[in-house]
């Protein structure tokens, strides 16, 4: 048992792997209905499902959570009081304008390293770290090249694999949806297992997700590593590639998210945005009006709760109507 679970894009899986443990991206499921503390009103479905999954997990050496939202902080406190696997809470600063914050993140990676050693991992040699970082970077590079030619569902699944142990470049995948479909962006929080149906639903309704900006999608991939810096300062390079470049909603100010979104929306020709937020996720919820203002694109607000699988007729008809509206607006 040497799997270490995580579900934040700010946890570098290669850092876990370099310590001889298996990183495992937690794709949560709505079937994991929260009990105990997680069942309270106001707990977001992700935090609730996480608590349930980790609490009952008998196959994890440890769990790494982050401070990017306070529900996860409280989930960590709750899990810490249970008899489940050890929990490490990685401090990811919200601010980024001072260099001290990057130093804090780098120190946190080192502290994570000590935690991993305690879990049964080993302190890696510099050579091991560099080799592991390169392996993950190469796998991601291959994926980036593929992203426009595969379906959104397949792409998301490959990203999941990449976030795990010993990634390899993805095998050729079936070509994506029809080129006449309406190009859409998916923006927001993480997809739970059942939510992948949303991606199929979009195809069925005549759309095509060309930009997966959900948590776990293209938006949350780290930057390409700089070969020189990987060799000279691997922790520094991890810090730059993860903390320094992943645009996210919790950053303060979160202008980086809008800069990235603007660039990617222009590059992909997106005509509408599916805004994916879990109920009680304040960070995404509060951004909705600004996303509308900043992008000038039609936005469909998809708020989901636990037990509200993506395949529900309500959601399907909303997606269908949204695409219908986009289609009509294209007719001169």
């Amino acid at each position: 048992m040497n799997d270490v679970a995580y579900l934040s894009p700010f946890v570098p899986p290669e850092w876990i792997a370099a310590h001889g443990l298996r990183p495992r991206w937690l794709r949560l499921s709505r079937a994991e209905q929260a009990t105990d503390a997680g069942a309270h009103r106001g707990v977001c479905p992700c935090a609730g499902a996480l608590m349930e999954r980790v609490h009952r997990a008998g196959d994890l050496a440890g769990v790494v959570l982050t401070t990017v939202c306070d529900q996860m902080r409280y989930a960590a406190a709750w899990l810490d009081a249970q008899s489940g696997p050890p929990v490490f809470l990685l401090n990811v600063p919200s601010t980024w304008e001072s260099p001290e914050t990057a130093r804090l993140y780098a120190d946190e990676l080192r502290r994570l390293g000590r935690f991993l050693v305690k879990l049964g991992g080993h302190a890696p040699t510099e050579k091991e770290v560099v080799a592991t970082l390169r392996r993950y970077d190469q796998a991601r590079a291959a994926l980036r090249a593929e992203c426009l030619s595969v379906s959104a569902r397949d792409y998301a699944l490959v990203l999941d694999r990449l976030a795990g142990h010993a990634p390899s470049p993805p095998a050729p995948l079936p070509k994506g949806e029809g080129r006449n479909a309406i190009p859409l962006a998916l923006l927001g929080g993480p997809l739970l297992e059942e939510d992948f149906e949303l991606l199929d639903m979009v195809v069925e309704a005549g759309g095509r997700i060309v930009l997966d900006a959900s948590q776990g999608g293209e938006r949350t991939l780290p930057a390409v590593f700089d070969e020189m810096r990987v060799s000279s300062d691997p922790v520094g390079e991890l810090t730059r590639a993860y903390f320094g470049t992943i645009p996210d909603v919790f950053r303060r100010p979160n202008t980086g998210l809008y800069d990235w979104l603007g660039r990617r929306l222009r590059a992909t020709g997106v005509r509408g945005i599916l805004f994916w937020r879990h109920v009680f996720c304040d960070l995404w919820h509060a951004e909705l009006p600004r996303i509308r203002e900043a992008t000038g694109l039609p936005v469909l607000d998809l708020d989901t709760t636990e037990g509200d699988a993506g395949s529900t007729p309500r959601m399907f008809s909303r997606v269908e109507s949204f695409l219908e509206m986009l289609r009509e607006s294209a007719i001169p």
Binding site: T67, C69, D70, Q71, R73, P93, S94, T95, F250, R252, P253, N254, C281, D282, L283, H285, A286, E287, P289, R290
Partner: peptide
């Protein structure tokens, strides 16, 4: 940072 999300989100707005 280690503050409630409500506040952080409202302040960003």
């Amino acid at each position: 940072g280690a503050t409630c999300d409500d506040f952080s989100a409202i302040a960003q707005r």
